[in-house]
Every structure is written in structure tokens, then in C-alpha cells.
């Protein structure tokens, strides 16, 4: 319980310690803590930014997907239309072709019929001439009696 120089010694030590703490212990520690506080704040801000960017990207992606879907639907619809058109065109082409072929076939047939009829007529006329010459039993000048024969043929035709 004696008061002595220890009192002064302790006072001086205390003031020295406070000075030492203020100069060499407090600043590095507090600076480091401050730095980390900033780091954490920056990190959180960056995380938030990232989250926002992700949200935006997700929205964009969803938009793109829906756009792609509508485009795809459009493409499918137009393709179907085009397909139908092609089929229709083919149908009409085929029909007209058929009609053309049928028509040409008919003309050919008619021609054939005509030719056959001509041939038949000539043959009939010569047969008639031969038959007549045989009946008349005499030569008939084909040239002289052509008129007569033609008449005959006309009558045949008419009959």
C-alpha cells in the first residue's frame, strides 16, 4: 500500500503504451479491417450486379425462345401452304396434260378413221370397178368412166 515511484512509472508506461498503440498497432489493423469491409461491400455489389445481369439474360433468352417458336410456327404454316400449292399446281398441270393427251389422241383417232375411210373408199371403188367390169364382161376404160364410178361411190357414201 506504499505510494512510491511505481505510480509515476506506471503513468509513463501507460502514456507510452497509448502512444505506441495509436502509432503502430491501431492503424494497420483498422486499415485492414476497413479494406475488408470495402471488399465485402464490393463483392456483394458485384454479386447483385451478376444477379441482375442473369435476370436480364434469362429474360432475353425467354424472348428469343418465344420468337423462335413463332418463327418456326410461321415457317411450318407457310411450308404447308406451299406444299398444298405445289400439289394443286401438279393436279392442274396433270389435268391439262391429260386433256391435251386425250385431245391429241382423239384427233389422231379421227385422222386414222378418216384415212381408213379414204382407203376403204378407194378400195371399194376399185372393187366396184372390178365387179362392174366383170359384170359387163368387157374392159371399161377407168379413165373414161371415172365420173360414173365417182357417182357410184357418192351413192355408196350416201347410203
Amino acid at each position: 500500500m506504499n505510494i512510491n515511484l511505481t505510480l509515476i512509472g506506471q503513468t509513463i508506461s501507460f502514456l507510452l503504451f497509448v502512444w505506441f498503440c495509436k502509432k503502430f498497432v491501431w492503424p494497420p489493423m483498422v486499415n485492414a479491417m476497413q479494406e475488408r469491409q470495402n471488399q465485402i461491400a464490393d463483392g456483394l455489389a458485384a454479386a447483385e450486379k451478376g444477379q441482375e445481369a442473369q435476370n436480364v439474360a434469362e429474360k432475353e433468352a425467354a424472348e428469343l425462345i418465344s420468337q423462335a417458336k413463332t418463327q418456326a410456327a410461321e415457317i411450318i404454316a407457310s411450308a404447308e401452304k406451299r406444299g398444298n400449292a405445289v400439289v394443286d399446281e401438279a393436279k392442274t398441270t396433270a389435268t391439262s396434260e391429260k386433256e391435251r393427251i386425250v385431245a391429241s389422241a382423239l384427233t389422231e383417232v379421227e385422222q386414222e378413221v378418216h384415212t381408213a375411210r379414204e382407203q376403204l373408199r378407194t378400195q371399194v371403188s376399185s372393187i366396184a370397178v372390178a365387179a362392174a367390169s366383170k359384170i359387163a364382161d368387157k374392159e371399161i376404160d377407168e379413165a373414161a368412166h371415172a365420173g360414173l364410178i365417182d357417182d357410184l361411190v357418192k351413192q355408196l357414201k350416201a347410203s
Binding site: Q10, T11, L15
Partner: peptide, 18 residues
């Protein structure tokens, strides 16, 4: 135990007083 020495405790208090 330095703080059971009255000089130590009062010494710090003296510094605070200053």
C-alpha cells in the same frame, strides 16, 4: 497481479487525469 498494486491503478488514473 499489477492491478492489485495501488500505484499501478492510480498511476493509470493519473495518466487519465493528465
Amino acid at each position: 497481479v499489477p492491478s492489485t498494486d495501488v500505484n499501478v491503478a492510480l498511476g493509470m488514473a493519473l495518466a487519465v487525469f493528465i
